[in-house]
């Protein structure tokens, strides 16, 4: 039975859809967590400690990584199959119908931008937090300075966003995410079969609104930390140290 997840087009699309929805759910939590950093460094670091190198956070990280990896592998696989299905000869003239969203035709390109960003993001945070703890637990050499900051997420946020370049790169990736989700959300529900004439436009709007909330939440955090650090305002976190 489960063969249809690899052998049928709709089965493959189901995998894309479920992993995509899972990633949206993850990002929604991630965004809410980030907002805590604006309010309280202690609160944020408590979350970092809770999600540090302990068994449940590691299981969570592994599941999340699997979600990403499956989504990405299927993305490339489907795209290769779809290009082949188009045939060897291309149209000389193409004119996109106005009802077709730009994002829907560029999901892979948007995904690749996010993938590049993911590398950068893991380097900025994960490699300095959970990874350091893991190396230390495995008996590796880590300097005490690095070890001290493994759950000090607040410190890493301040560090990362004091740079205008980092801030800009993050915002570019978030813009790509917005486009990806503006199509991805309704597309995922359509793939599962959860759609009909009445709900068609509603689901599209719910998707756009959800994407906007998630992306804005991330951007607000980033921009506030950037302004605070860059201009030395020192007003963050709002509720004091």
């Amino acid at each position: 039975m489960s063969l249809f997840l690899t052998q049928s087009s709709i089965g493959r699309k189901l995998v894309m859809s479920i992993t995509g929805l899972f990633l949206i759910l993850f990002l929604t939590f991630h965004m809410c967590m980030n907002l805590v950093a604006i309010l309280s460094a202690e609160g944020y670091n408590a979350i970092c400690e809770f999600l540090g190198a302990n068994w449940y956070a590691l299981v969570g990280t592994a599941v999340l990584a699997a979600g990403f990896i499956i989504h990405i592998i299927y993305a490339f696989w489907l795209t290769v199959q779809n290009r082949a299905a188009r045939g060897a000869d291309r149209y000389a003239v193409v004119d996109k119908p106005k009802d077709v969203e730009w994002a829907s035709q560029n999901m892979l390109a948007l995904g690749i931008i996010m993938l590049a960003f993911l590398g950068l993001h893991l380097y900025h945070f994960w490699s300095k937090m959970q990874l350091v703890d893991l190396i230390e637990m495995a008996g590796g050499d880590v300097c005490s300075q690095a070890l001290e900051n493994t759950t000090n997420g607040f410190y890493h946020i301040v560090n990362t966003f004091s740079s205008p370049i980092n801030t800009l790169l993050y915002i570019i990736a978030l813009a790509a995410l917005w486009f990806h989700l503006s199509h991805g959300f309704w597309s995922a529900l359509q793939t599962i079969g959860f759609n009909n004439t009445t709900w068609f436009d509603r689901i599209k709007w719910i998707g756009r609104i959800w994407a906007t909330i998630v992306v804005l939440g991330f951007i607000v955090t980033i921009v506030m930390f950037f302004l605070d650090g860059f201009f030395g305002l020192n007003i963050l976190p709002l509720l004091g140290a």
Binding site: S9, K13, L78, N82, D99, V100, S104, M107, T191
Partner: peptide, 15 residues
């Protein structure tokens, strides 16, 4: 028969 995987771009319904 070699048709592709639908990614819900909607070009079909538009055309």
């Amino acid at each position: 028969l070699g048709f592709g995987n639908c990614t819900n771009t909607g070009a079909c319904a538009a055309e």
